[in-house]
Every structure is written in C-alpha cells, then in structure tokens.
Design a protein around this nucleic acid. Structure first.
Length: 907
RNA sequence: AGGCACGUAGCUCAGUGGAAGAGCACUACCUUGACACGGUAGGGGUCGGCGGUUCAAUCCCGCCCGUGCCUACCA
C-alpha cells in the first residue's frame, strides 16, 4: 500500500538523492573504462559568481545530455571547474579590503594582496559548486579544476612560452583600449559600444601659421586637440586643396603642425571636410600617424587625467578638460559651431567607464595564423555548430580577426613569464631565469602584468585533462564530444578554444558546439540586479524544486536564433511543478493498485513481447505508445531539439498515460477485482503494463527531472536483479516488438468515438449520471467486428448503459427525431435521447456538420478533378485525398439522412 | 555602414511544399477513491503586406513594412 503524500514535495527528496548518487560514485568516469566516451567540460563559472538563470539554463542542458548519454552506456564525463576571473575577482577583494580595513591594494602591496585573494577564494570561492549540486548536475567532481591551480598555471605558462617561441606572441607599442577606472588594457572584445550615444559635433578653427586663413575641423572630443599633430583633408577637396602642406598654429600649446592629405581617413562629405589628427588617442588617427610619420603625443595618464602635455589643462580629468578646452577656444574666438551628433562610444565591459584609446606597450597574440586552421576545421565539419546558422557569424569574425592584446595591468592572474634585463634583453621562460642570457646579469625583473583571463580559458578543454603531459585522460576524453555555452561568448571563448585546441593538440577541442540562448525576464529585458528583475534559481529550487526549474528551462529551449532569447517567468516553473505533481499522482495511483503484483512473473510474461503476453487493447496500445514516444524523445535529443524532447515526454505522460491509460486501467482493475485465477491474471497484466509504462516514462524523463524520477523509480516494483538506481539503467531504446500499429489505430478510433459522445453530452447538458444507450453504425463488417470487441471500453468511458454496433444504412434502430448524431471518422455515433431532444437545436447541429463536410467535399472534388493535380501530385497524396473525399461524401449522406429523419419525425 | 535572424491563436513560442500546433489565458460543465497543482468539452489564426515559382506556398524566391541581435575606426 502506498503512503505517498498527496502532492509532491521536492525539498524532502532532492538533497537526499544527490548525496546518495555522490556516495555511490555515479558521477565519476574512469578514463580507462572500456566504453565509448562522452566528454564535456563545463563553461567554468567565475569563482566570484553565484548561480544565475544563465548558468541554470546551460547547466541544465549540459546535465541533460550527460545523463542521457550515461544512460546510453557511454563513459560520460562532465568536467567541473571555475575561472579565476582576473578583473572581477580583484575588484571583489579590493572592495572588501576597502570596506573592512579602509585600505587599497597599493597600501598592502602586491604579494599581500594576492595572498588576500587566495584567502578569499578559500573562504568563499566556489560557492557556485554547491548550487550546481542543488540543480542536480552530475559533474565528475573528482576532476574539478581551477584556472589558477598550479598544474593549470603551468599549462598557461607553457602555452605562452610556446607561442612566443613560435613568433605568435609579441610585445609592441600600440594603440590599445584602456580603462581609466580599472587602469588596465582591454582586448577589443572587452569593449562594449553604446550605440546611439547622444554627443556633440563641435567645430573649431586652427589658424594657418602663415596668417593666410584657417582650417575648421569637426570633432566629438575637443579635448584631444591637446594631442593633435596634424589636420587631415581629402586630397581632392577643392575647399582645402591649397592648404595642404601648410602649417597650422596650435592655439593652446606651443606647437605647429601640417595640413596633410589623407584619402582614407577623410570623407569630404562629413563635417567640415577637415579632421584633426590625434594619433595617440584615436585608432584611425593612429593609422594616419603611421602613414604620415607624425609625432604621437599622449595627453592622458593611466587615470584618464590630462598630463603635462596638456599645458594649462594638466591635472584635469578627461571630461572636465573637454569643457575647459571648449571654453578656452571660445575665448580665443576660434569656436565655429556645434550640432548634436549621435555616435557609438566604447565602454569597459566590466565597469562601464568610457574606454580611452591609449598608446601603450603590451603583449599580443598574432591571430591570423591561428584562425586559419580553425576556419578550415569548421568548414570541413570537424566541429559543427548547433544551430548551424552560428557558423556564419563565426566565419565573419574569424575572417576579420585582429591581434589579441593579452596583457593586463592587474595583480590577480597568471603573471607574464617574461623577464627584463637592464641590457635590454627580454627572456621568456617556463621558470625564472637565473641570469640574462645576453649579458649574464642576475638582476632580472619579471613583467608586472598578468594575462587576460581568457588566455587561460582558451586552454580549458585540454589543460583540464592534464596537458601538456600526455595523460590517459587526454587520450580518452579529447576531443570532447560537445560543448554547450551561451552565444554571447562565441568569440571570447569558443572561437579561441578552437584555435588553441588545433594549435596545441592538433585536433578540434569539441565535435559539436551547442549554443543556447540568453535568458531574460518575461518582458524580454536582460536580468540585472540594478533593474531588480532577476530570478534567483536557488530560490526557485527551494520553492518548487530543481526538477521543476530544469523542466521549465528544457521546455523553453528551442534552437537559438540570433537576437532571440528565452523570456522566462515564474509561471513556467509553476507549470513544470504541476507536471511533477501529475507524475507523482500517477505513481501514487499505480502504487495503490499493486497488491498481489509479482514483478518477476510479469517480466517472464512480457519477455517475448505483447503477443505472447496476451494483452488487451489498452495494454498493447500504451506499450506501443511509450515505445514510439521513447524513440521520439531520443531522436529529438540526437538533434539537440531539447524542447521537442521535453514536450514529447510531457504529452505522453499527461495526455496518454494519465488521461487515457490510467482511466482505462481503473475500469480494467475494477472488473477483475475478484479472487479467481482469471481475475488475478487479468489484474497482473494491467498492473504489469502500468508499472512498465510508468517505469519507462521515468527513465525517459530522468535526464530532465533526475530527482522525482529516481524517487518514483525506486518505489516501483522491479524484477530481481534490477539496477540500484535509475541513473545506471539504460535509456529506453527502440524495441520493435512493441510497435503495434493496429492497436494504435483501434485505440484512436475508440478515443474519437468516446470524445464524440462526451461532446454530445456536453452540448446537450446531459449529466454524467445519465447513462446513454449508444448505437454505432459502421460501413463494413470488418470494422463492426473490431468495434464489437471494444464495446465495454466505450461503454465505460462514455458512460453508456448499452453499446450496439450495426451496419449503417438500415433504419428503425432508434426513434426518429429522438436522437443526436455525430461522425467519429467514418463511424456514425448515434445517441437516442428519448424526450430530451431539442429538435431545432439538433437540426442546427446537423446542418453545421453537413456544411463543414460539404465544404471539404467540394474542395477535394475540385482538386481531384484537376488533371494538373492528378497528373503531377505523388500517388500517396492522391490516395490520401481520395480517401478523405470518400469519407466526406459518406458523412454527408449519413448526416443528411439523419437530418431528414429528424425533420420528418418532428413534423 | 555591413552581416545575421525574426514577424504563426489574447500572451509566449514550436512547426512543415501536400487538410494550421503546444503551454498559458479564455468559455461552459464537473468536489468521480491518483491528482482541484485536477477532469471533460469548447471558442479563437486569410501563418506581417504585395508580387513570383509550383498541380499545390504559412513553408521556396523577390520587394516592402516592422522588430531584435552581432560586427565595424565614421571625425
């Protein structure tokens, strides 16, 4: 007897099973196991991070695939870890230091600060791991890796040194993106452009040095004029042609510089046709500076404050200087105008400070040689994107790739393995060199900078498996099978991993890249703490359970078209929770109805399929259906159609197993409630089928909802020798013995008939307590025989006292004018309604049905009379349409007959 | 500026060259011994607009309108 509570309470069940699975070591994959590998690495969350909805989505998808493959007998390995997240982590610890001790990192020094970060990590880092466990993630925790672990750090150094030795890493003075707030260089990808910033196009005049006039320039950043070293015009612009080669006089700092001609920089149609050139603070101007060999004058320090080059404006902040410079120009009578101007302004991805282009010496990775093999690998299908359309975006970026600035002026991260000698020699080495290789000096100074966090992340799929050592792990699990991640880090991470994997391992790092969408709030707005529209997955789990959250996300995970996202709301979770409750109650029903059931005996009975087991229609039908749905779910997962898989499982469980089979089983069990041997056998067939269908459904659903399926699975009776956990069972596989087209067709007809009767009842307001007498009229004896076999099922479910089946066309079987009639496929469903009939109403209903059938018939006739159609359409389409036409014609005939009788009877 | 997508039921979204689908919402009825976190039945869409290809178009092609996203140095 079941003592299950009436509704499902996940909080009691989930933590218990996760602990049990851990204890039994189910998450661990042995690299030496003689099984086909399925390997995946987690996109490592920041150590500072806590689980947000984006993680919840990705990790649900990843766990879903890991569990699914594990149940298909793969050696499934999902590798966990976390990322040291340079800037983010440094900022967190700095903030804490300031709050607790009112000190800056500079106050305590680099060594002490880095120790502080380690201490912070020991105390509060990897909080997210506990949250991943709550979500049910079956990660191989023994392999958890942190990007600052000593072996991983060694791999980072190894990668740097190799690339340096190969000439793919170089140090150069370039114009880079600088964040004056974080005081570090950024890569191009770390700059977000704020499209549509309302700015000003300000015009002012540079006087020509010879006094022959002036040249008016237009700029959005007047303050950078302090660093101007040229004015550029288009060589063919008649307005400016005679000024080319002349000098202008800088009105504020004591300097003269030329008017130059540059057809690349200058668009004569824009602004005044003359451009001020600031090579040290603008990427385009930098290029001009190189082309024309102009001086490059940096006018800001690392905080974005004007330096000594700014003359009277020194020590002013960038934005204060802008105002001051404008005011001064006005005083000097050089202001020439201003108009509003919308343009894109770059912001630091991390702190949103306006990025300053600065001239600076940094380390770079030469990307083109790395990009080429990655492009080819994707072209050749060695790595596939899902959805496929992302490969276009990938190619576009890869073909236009630029060198990657990898040095960061931070303290937290992998320190650049380069040492400088007073003699000017640079030594790049795996360990600190004892002396300069050139001059022998022993006082070498290591580069102060650390590497971009992504420089360690791009090694993730192989550095986590022991690279550069040749490990068993690498041999077994590299290349990994799939990678799942959000499309927002396609360039940051996926593309770079492809490049690093091909370069260092000579093989792609993953066969398939599944890119999932972004999760937003229900209005489609990005979730953010500032906006206050975040949904905390941990709170959701506490309230509704991890299974509900996971299923809600899976249900919504359709292929990620660009610019689309998952609009997530709590109602999605509530729906999923209702589903969990439904499953729970289906299991309760089963468990309440199993007294006397012997799982071993049923297993014997069913061992050779449903024929030998002598099952009845409902049993044959549901076993065929669970089989078909299993294949559907499995097939959908093969194609990464996650929502389709979730929805197929959902509809099977709710609309077939619960709505129909359990109802059919109730009647069957009631009928066979006695103690006779016959009853016992009849009962056991139903019990066995119910348990089998439910057990299969639980396995099917386990990757989506691991906890509830385990809980129920454990409670179901199983034949002796069954596995200890649903986690280590086999995923439902194709078994053609249970395919039963005939039973599915018969059941579909029975269902149609029952629905037609319920419809009649509903429309006429006939209460369920009124037992109906039913007549089914069919066109041939074959169908008559079949339906006669299902009379009792129909009677039970449509609440009829009597069901008669006869050939159609006869008369006198029911009282004229006293019946309701409807078509269920080609079966006439006739319900005598003595004394209950509203003749006018019946007439209207019949007419409506006729009208629809006539519409169908006319449409089909027209089609089938068109030789163009019959001549060109494929045979099966013609056949189908002819059958439909025949059905429509028969329906019209029978409905019209019924109408005539009705009218005749009433008159 | 270039590129990639999208426009299907009130809402959120699937879908396919051969009779329009789901979840939620809505309407009516039902406290039936698995479940009211439930059941039964139902209403609701010229599949953004206009052309074209085809025997057949929501699906393929072109144009237009609208929306979103990505990349890019427009002073």
């Amino acid at each position: 007897m079941s003592d299950l509570p009436k509704s499902y309470e996940p909080a009691d069940i989930e933590p218990r099973w996760y602990a049990e699975w851990m204890a039994r070591g189910y998450f661990h994959a042995d690299a030496a196991a003689p099984k086909a590998p399925f390997a995946m690495v987690i996109p490592p969350p920041n150590v500072t991070g806590s689980l947000h909805m984006g993680h919840a989505l990705g990790d649900t998808i990843e766990d879903l695939f890991t569990r699914w493959r594990r149940m298909a007998a793969y050696n499934a390995m999902w590798l966990p870890g976390s990322d040291h997240a340079g800037i983010a982590t440094q900022m967190v610890v700095e903030r804490e230091l300031r709050a607790k001790e009112k000190k800056s990192r500079h106050d305590i020094g680099r060594e002490a600060f880095v120790e502080r970060v380690w201490q912070w990590r020991r105390e509060t880092g990897d909080r997210i791991f506990a949250q991943l466990k709550k979500l049910g993630c079956s990660l191989d925790w023994d392999r958890a890796t942190f990007t600052m672990d000593p072996p991983y750090s060694a791999a980072v150094v190894e990668a740097f040194v190799r690339l340096y030795e190969e000439g793919l890493i170089y140090r150069a003075r370039r114009l880079i993106n600088w964040c004056p707030n974080d005081r570090t260089a950024l890569s191009d990808l770390e700059v977000d452009y704020d499209e549509g910033t309302q700015g000003e196009l300000y015009e002012f005049a540079y006087p020509l040095a010879d006094g022959s006039g002036e040249v008016v320039v237009a700029t959005t950043r007047p303050e950078t004029m302090l660093g101007d070293t040229a004015v550029a015009v288009h060589p063919d612009d008649p307005r400016h042609r005679e000024k080319i080669g002349k000098l202008v006089r800088h009105p504020i700092v004591n300097r003269q510089f030329p008017v130059i001609a540059d057809a690349i920089l200058v668009d004569p149609k824009f602004g005044t046709g003359a451009v001020k050139v600031t090579p040290a603070h603008d990427p385009n101007d930098f290029e001009v500076g190189l082309r024309h060999n102009l001086p490059m004058i940096s006018i800001f320090d690392e905080k974005g404050v004007v330096n000594a080059e700014g003359g009277p404006f020194a020590f002013m902040d960038r934005f204060a200087a802008r105002k001051a410079v404008k005011a001064r120009l006005k005083e000097l009578g050089l202001e020439r105008g201003s108009k509003p101007h919308v343009h894109a302004v770059g912001h630091c991805q991390r702190c949103e400070t306006v990025v300053e282009p600065m001239l600076s010496t940094q380390w770079f990775v030469k990307m083109e040689p790395l990009a080429k093999p990655a492009i080819e690998a994707v072209e050749q299908g060695k790595t596939k994107f899902v959805p496929e359309s992302w490969s276009k975006t990938f190619f576009h970026w890869m073909h236009n790739i630029r060198d990657w600035c990898i040095s960061r002026q931070l303290w937290w991260g992998h320190r650049i393995p380069a040492w400088y000698c007073k003699c000017g020699e640079t030594t790049v080495a795996r360990t600190a060199p004892g002396a300069c290789g050139k001059c022998g000096a022993t006082e070498l100074k290591q580069d102060d900078d650390v590497l971009d966090t992504w420089f360690s992340s791009w090694l993730w799929p192989f550095a986590t498996l022991g690279w550069p050592n040749e490990t068993r792990e690498l041999k077994t699990f590299y290349p990994t099978t799939m990678l799942d991640t959000g499309y927002d880090i396609l360039f940051f991470w996926v593309a770079r991993m492809l490049m690093a994997g091909l370069h260092f391992m000579k093989k792609v790092p993953f066969r398939t890249v599944y890119l999932h969408t972004m999760v937003t709030d229900e209005k489609g707005e990005k979730m953010s703490k500032v906006k206050g529209n975040t949904i905390d997955p941990v709170e959701v789990i506490d309230k509704h359970g991890a299974d509900a959250l996971r299923f809600a996300l899976a249900w919504l995970t359709t292929h990620a078209a660009q610019g689309k996202n998952i609009k997530f709301s709590m109602s999605n979770v509530e729906d999923a929770r209702r589903f969990a409750n439904k499953i729970w109650n289906a299991a309760r029903f089963a468990l309440m109805n199993l007294p006397g059931y012997d799982a071993d005996r049923f297993a014997d009975r069913i061992a050779d399929g449903p024929d030998r087991a002598e099952l009845d229609l409902p049993e044959r039908w549901i076993l065929s259906r669970v089989q078909r749905v299993s294949e559907e779910v499995d097939g959908a997962l093969e194609e990464y159609r996650i929502a389709d898989a979730a929805q197929a499982a959902y509809h099977f469980i709710w609309n077939e197993l619960c709505d129909w089979y359990i109802e059919l089983a109730k009647a069957g069990l009631a009928k066979a409630s006695g103690d006779s041997e016959a009853d016992l056998i009849a009962r056991s067939k139903i019990q066995g089928t119910l348990v089998t269908a439910l057990e299969t459904a639980m396995r099917l659903l386990h990757p989506f909802m691991p906890f509830i399926t385990e809980e129920i699975w454990q409670k179901l009776p199983k034949p002796s020798g069954a596995p200890q956990s649903i986690m280590i069972t086999l995923y439902p596989v194709r078994d053609v013995r249970f395919h039963d087209d005939a039973s599915e067709a018969s059941m579909a007809l029975v269902q149609k008939i029952i629905v037609a009767i319920r419809n009649i009842r509903q429309e006429r307001n006939i209460p369920t307590s009124t037992r109906l007498r039913l007549v089914l009229a069919v066109g041939d004896d074959y169908k008559k025989t079949i339906l006669e076999g299902y009379q009792s099922i129909i009677a039970e479910h449509a609440r009829c006292s009597e069901v008669r089946v006869r050939r159609s066309g006869g008369s006198g079987e029911y009282n004229v004018g006293q019946t309701a009639m409807a078509m269920a496929g080609d079966v006439e469903v006739i319900v005598p309604l003595e004394g209950l009939v509203d003749t006018a109403g019946e007439k209207a209903k019949l007419e409506k049905q006729i009208e629809k059938a006539v519409r169908d018939r006319d449409h089909l006739r027209k089609k089938l009379n068109d030789p163009n159609f019959t001549g060109r359409a494929p045979a099966e389409v013609l056949e189908k349409d002819r059958a439909r036409l025949a059905e429509a014609e028969a329906a019209i005939a029978r409905l019209e007959l019924a109408l005539q009788r009705l009218v005749g009877g009433a008159s």
